[in-house]
Amino acid sequence: MTLRIGIVGAGFMGSTHAAGWMQTPAKIIGIHALHPPKPRQLADTVRAEAYDSLDKLIADCDVLDICTPTHTHHDLVLKAAAAGKHIICEKPLARHVDQAQAMLKACQTARVKLLVAHVVRFFPEYALAKTAVDRGDIGKVAVVRLTRCSYQPKLAHDNWYLDFEKSGGMMLDLMIHDFDYARWVAGDVESVFAKNVAFQKKDAPGDYALVMLRHKNGAISNIEGGWAYPPPMFRTGFEIAGDAGLIEHPADSSVPLGVYLRQTGSGDAAEVGLPMSPLSESPYTTQLRHFYEVLTNNAVPARVLPEDGLASLQIALAAIESAQTGKRVALAGGI
């Protein structure tokens, strides 16, 4: 039986997921989004229907794929779970911890799968480093360094990224990738200390933050995040030092192409910055192919558990609290 996918949201992430699903045996049955004509355009591209009614889309699908702004995740997950549908939810899982907890509980009760799209776990360089760590190549992890910086998202309409109440700002929206990855490679986190720009300078054209994590096993992490670079720059990098070795992946280190041509077009940057590294398959597609396997074969464990989505949210919110209070924030018992 073909797995029927309903996508909510037709922005950048909705389109990316739609393109990914096209590479799986699943069928996108419909797209629901608030602002026309985007849902119609996207539906036409992927030969699906544009749904005006969210309820009807939920009723018609097997899996609801939620690609909407962060603050809307909670209500959408609860609706889908109540209808007994499996769920894919973009990161961050929710805007607030109590919301995420309610979402986990609802999915558990309804016995539906909740797959959180922490796509960095599917980027081949990050997945490779994780495999090397798990294989014991560098021994016990001691110091982790993660970097992810881009420019401030510049959506033409309804730039919810810049609304702290909706997105949680750069520290929640962008840095959650690396909070999740740090926890994935170095284990549960017991305290967070953070500094950022946005809380100090309200009119700053972007944000920049440095966050230090202490993991339960004694490892420490330095995490850099920013909406601070000139467009279209986006850099990511990592370094993992262990007691038996070192993994390095500095920003700019594996750029396989150099294109130095005299500018012919306008050279405008995309609305939202993305890391660029040509691959035969987009990591977003890799992620959705994995989710497809998880959804159609109960023997396949999910690479990202709902608890991972909750934990990275808790770390991000602790980082925000630390940046606001100036204190190190403890996560009781480790998260």
Binding site: K140, V141, A142, M212, I220, A241, D243, R328
Partner: peptide, 9 residues
């Protein structure tokens, strides 16, 4: 502020 550890070596 500082975090230190003694895992390496």
């Amino acid at each position: 502020f500082a975090e230190t550890n003694t895992i390496l070596h």
